[in-house]
Design a protein around this nucleic acid. Structure first.
Lengths: 113, 113
DNA sequence: CGCTCATATGCCTCGTCAGGCATACGTCCC
DNA sequence: GGGACGTATGCCTGACGAGGCATATGAGCG
């Protein structure tokens, strides 16, 4: 199994996924919007499908692709432990801003304790 | 500038980042923990540094690397629009469970409204 | 100062992958 | 059924990237 990150490394594949957030799309639609050749789109969709990012529905002679959540959930889960990095950061920023406000209220802007 | 996703496509680089969540580490530490050659580790760290994922501190003859949040925040931001995919799903699941509870309370388990 | 430890860099090779082009497959319509 | 449309696949090529090995750099220590 290829890593979901490896799949997402390709910019056009990310673009396809982003397109599919709005609604499901046929191959031709994707081809036109992204200005890619039809084989290129089909190949990317193949990769995305094999990795579980999308699934296809048959509509007459078109194949309509839509998103599947699982692989992106995995990515989200991998990211989870790192979120403390900026959440703490935001907290620190907020505390800093609070400090600024407090000192400003005391008429001492930019004080360095 | 290389995409942050391209950087994360490499499993050993993800492993390095994961190692650094706990605490900052020297090159040698990473080398030992991940069983990679020293040049391999140095090269990955170079890539990670150029992409802003980590930064280095000098400690005597060691270089100690630590995480930087920005690139991972970008990834997180890219992911944001997709989260509705599974959050909606969870909501639906929760509503379903609520329904089950409610009907169970009425003595009608598994009712399909 | 010469040695050793810690890390970085250069060069080469091999594997992988995206895209182009040609073509195959499947479905609809006349 | 033959043609046109929509999509998939096979083959080839060019580019890039990871790792191995050798080596450079740089700091501390006797």
């Amino acid at each position: 199994m290829e890593s979901s990150f490896a799949i997402l490394a390709e910019p056009n594949r990310r673009a396809i996924l982003t397109l599919l957030v709005t609604s499901e799309r046929s191959v031709g639609e994707i081809e036109r919007r992204l200005k890619l050749s039809q084989p290129a789109v089909s190949k990317h969709l193949r990769v995305l499908r094999d990795a579980g990012f999308v699934e296809a529905r048959v509509d007459a002679r078109r194949r309509v692709y839509r998103l599947r959540p699982e692989p992106l959930m995995e990515v989200d889960a991998w990211l989870a432990p790192f979120r403390q990095l900026w959440e703490r950061h935001v907290d620190a920023l907020e505390r800093h801003l609070d400090t600024l406000e407090a000192t400003a209220a005391k008429g001492k802007p930019d004080a360095q304790p």
